[in-house]
Computed example of a mutant assay.
Amino acid sequence: MQNNVMIEPLHAARQFVEKYFPNCQAAVLAGSVVRGEATATSDLDIVVFDRELKDSYRESFVDFGWPIEVFLHNVTSYKKYFTMDYERARPSIQKMLAEGIVIKDDGIVDDLKKDAQEVLDNGPQRWTDQTIDSKRYFITDVLDDFIGCSTIQEELFIVNLLAELVSEFILRTNGKWLGTSKWVFRLLKAHDEQLAFQFFEALNRYYETKDKTQIIEFVDNVLQPYGGRLFEGFSMGKTT
Rank of each mutant, 00 (worst) to 15 (best):
Y78F: 06
E37I: 08
F61E: 06
Q25Y: 08
D121E: 14
T83Y: 13
L97I: 00
S150V: 15
R229H: 00
D43H: 08
F197E: 06
K114F: 11
R14M: 11
S167M: 06
H191V: 14
N23F: 08
G227M: 03
E154K: 14
I103E: 03
Y57I: 08
T239K: 14
I147C: 06
L29F: 03
F146Y: 04
I158R: 09
I7W: 05
D220M: 07
D211T: 02
V62N: 12
K104N: 05
Y20V: 06
L10M: 10
A116P: 02
R229C: 04
S235T: 15
L171Q: 07
M6A: 14
D115R: 06
I147M: 05
E208Y: 12
W66R: 03
A12G: 02
R229M: 00
Y20S: 06
F185T: 01
R88G: 10
I158S: 07
R51C: 08
T131G: 15
G227C: 02
F82I: 00
E99C: 06
V102I: 12
P22R: 08
D192K: 09
D145T: 12
Q15C: 12
G228T: 01
A27W: 01
Q15R: 11
A13P: 00
T240F: 15
T41Y: 14
K95M: 11
G100L: 00
T180A: 13
F138G: 13
